[in-house]
Amino acid sequence: MGYDKPVPKPNSDTRVFWAGCKDHELRFQKCKECGHVRWPPSVVCPKCYSSETEWIVSKGKGRVYSFVVYHVAFHPAFRDEVPYVTAIVELQEGPHLLTNIVGCKASEIKCDMPVEVIWEDITEEFSLPKFKPT
């Protein structure tokens, strides 16, 4: 049985990020002018409007900024997953990333809890960055 959940749909802005995920690297744009690390990717820094950008690799560590527990499957491929946790992780470099928290019970998760990335290879093409408690 093939992978039946939705997969990422890279575009010209996000292609570098998803290619990085395949290599188990979290790649973000960093402004060469002011140093702001931004997410999602774009052609211009929202802080200083510089378009001079480099890609950096995140350490993959951060904290749970907020999280929710899905008790209803809004998509049929998630019927066997509920209850599952989606969360926003604030990475140490700054970006807020939508992800899943795995490796612990939903009841153990708290805002500001430290987490680190763990990779899930879902297809030949894609790996998803998920996070577990450190």
Binding site: K5, V7, P8, K9, H75, E81, Y84, T86
Partner: peptide, 10 residues
């Protein structure tokens, strides 16, 4: 976008 990959639906 890519949110559905994580089961995030709106």
């Amino acid at each position: 976008g890519d949110n559905g990959a994580f089961g995030e639906f709106g």
